[in-house]
Amino acid sequence: MKLLVTFSRKGGKQPLIAQTVKDTGVLINVERAFIESNEGEVLIDVPDEDTEIISAAMEKAGARVKKIEDSVIRDESECVNCGACISVCPQDVLSFDETWTLCIDSSKCVLCGKCVEACPHQALSLLP
């Protein structure tokens, strides 16, 4: 399960992820991180069964946690199933099924947005 964690750094630079790993004993995989002077946003991957423990621990430390399930949103009325998005995705999120229909496996998505830019029909967007 992927979690998008946002936190403020105004109260000082807390080692949020390291602390959570230490406290829970759950290994966290950091997929993407944007850290600015005041706040930070980190996309992490954790085992499905540990999702609640991690969310609770991070929320207790003052972070906001959002489960990422349907990260890539497809506008069915715009998509023509061309596949321009498929090869630009670094995570193999997008593929064709046997009927040449585009399939999206959001569980692998790291919210990079490359598919959104590559779509000639402006049919893709990332979760709000």
Binding site: N81, C82, G83, A84, S87, W100
Partner: peptide, 14 residues
């Protein structure tokens, strides 16, 4: 192995 992308739609062509 390099991934390919079609710009035309084979589904629509069918």
């Amino acid at each position: 192995e390099v991934k390919t992308s079609s710009l035309s739609s084979y589904k629509k062509a069918l």
